[in-house]
Deep mutational scan, measured.
Amino acid sequence: TEEVEKIVRELQKRGVSQEEIQRILKRNGIDPRDVEHVVRRLR
Results as ranks from 00 to 15, higher is better:
residue 24 I to V: 07
residue 26 K to F: 14
residue 7 I to T: 05
residue 16 V to K: 10
residue 5 E to W: 14
residue 12 Q to M: 15
residue 41 R to C: 12
residue 9 R to G: 04
residue 36 E to H: 04
residue 24 I to L: 08
residue 12 Q to F: 15
residue 14 R to Y: 11
residue 40 R to N: 14
residue 9 R to W: 05
residue 2 E to M: 09
residue 35 V to E: 01
residue 8 V to I: 11
residue 26 K to S: 12
residue 25 L to P: 00
residue 38 V to L: 10
residue 11 L to I: 02
residue 16 V to A: 08
residue 42 L to V: 06
residue 28 N to F: 14
residue 1 T to V: 11
residue 20 E to A: 10
residue 14 R to M: 11
residue 11 L to H: 01
residue 8 V to H: 01
residue 28 N to Y: 13
residue 12 Q to P: 00
residue 41 R to G: 12
residue 27 R to S: 13
residue 29 G to V: 01
residue 27 R to Q: 13
residue 12 Q to N: 09
residue 24 I to T: 06
residue 33 R to W: 05
residue 29 G to Q: 02
residue 34 D to Q: 11
residue 4 V to Y: 04
residue 18 Q to N: 13
residue 16 V to W: 11
residue 43 R to A: 14
residue 6 K to M: 10
residue 31 D to R: 04
residue 24 I to G: 00
residue 15 G to H: 06
residue 31 D to I: 01
residue 29 G to E: 03
residue 28 N to K: 13
residue 17 S to K: 08
residue 9 R to Q: 06
residue 35 V to F: 10
residue 32 P to S: 05
residue 1 T to F: 13
residue 10 E to Y: 12
residue 28 N to P: 05
residue 34 D to T: 15
residue 24 I to H: 06
residue 37 H to I: 14
residue 3 E to Y: 13
residue 30 I to F: 14
residue 42 L to W: 02
residue 22 Q to T: 13
residue 31 D to V: 02
residue 10 E to I: 10
residue 39 V to R: 05
residue 2 E to L: 09
residue 6 K to S: 06
residue 9 R to F: 05
residue 30 I to W: 12
residue 23 R to N: 13
residue 19 E to T: 10
residue 1 T to H: 10
residue 8 V to P: 00
residue 16 V to L: 12
residue 21 I to P: 00
residue 2 E to K: 12
residue 13 K to I: 07
residue 41 R to M: 15
residue 13 K to L: 10
residue 38 V to T: 03
residue 31 D to H: 06
residue 27 R to G: 09
residue 15 G to K: 05
residue 19 E to W: 11
residue 25 L to G: 00
residue 7 I to K: 06
residue 29 G to W: 03
residue 34 D to H: 10
residue 38 V to I: 14
residue 10 E to L: 12
residue 35 V to R: 01
residue 35 V to C: 03
residue 9 R to S: 05
residue 26 K to R: 10
residue 9 R to C: 00
residue 12 Q to R: 10
residue 25 L to S: 00
residue 17 S to E: 07
residue 26 K to I: 15
residue 43 R to M: 15
residue 41 R to L: 14
residue 1 T to E: 10
residue 30 I to M: 07
residue 36 E to M: 06
residue 26 K to M: 14
residue 18 Q to S: 12
residue 43 R to W: 15
residue 9 R to Y: 05
residue 27 R to Y: 09
residue 6 K to T: 06
residue 31 D to P: 07
residue 33 R to Q: 06
residue 23 R to E: 13
residue 32 P to W: 08
residue 5 E to Y: 14
residue 31 D to Q: 02
residue 18 Q to D: 14
residue 37 H to V: 12
residue 5 E to R: 04
residue 42 L to C: 03
residue 14 R to D: 06
residue 37 H to A: 15
residue 22 Q to V: 15
residue 3 E to I: 10
residue 39 V to F: 15
residue 39 V to M: 15
residue 1 T to N: 09
residue 21 I to K: 00
residue 9 R to H: 04
residue 17 S to G: 08
residue 15 G to F: 03
residue 33 R to L: 08
residue 19 E to A: 11
residue 32 P to T: 04
residue 3 E to P: 06
residue 14 R to H: 10
residue 17 S to T: 11
residue 11 L to F: 06
residue 26 K to P: 00
residue 24 I to N: 01
residue 25 L to E: 00
residue 7 I to Y: 08
residue 31 D to S: 06
residue 37 H to N: 13
residue 13 K to D: 08
residue 7 I to M: 13
residue 34 D to F: 13
residue 20 E to N: 10
residue 39 V to Q: 04
residue 15 G to V: 02
residue 22 Q to A: 14
residue 43 R to G: 14
residue 17 S to V: 06
residue 34 D to I: 15
residue 25 L to I: 02
residue 34 D to W: 14
residue 41 R to K: 15
residue 11 L to G: 00
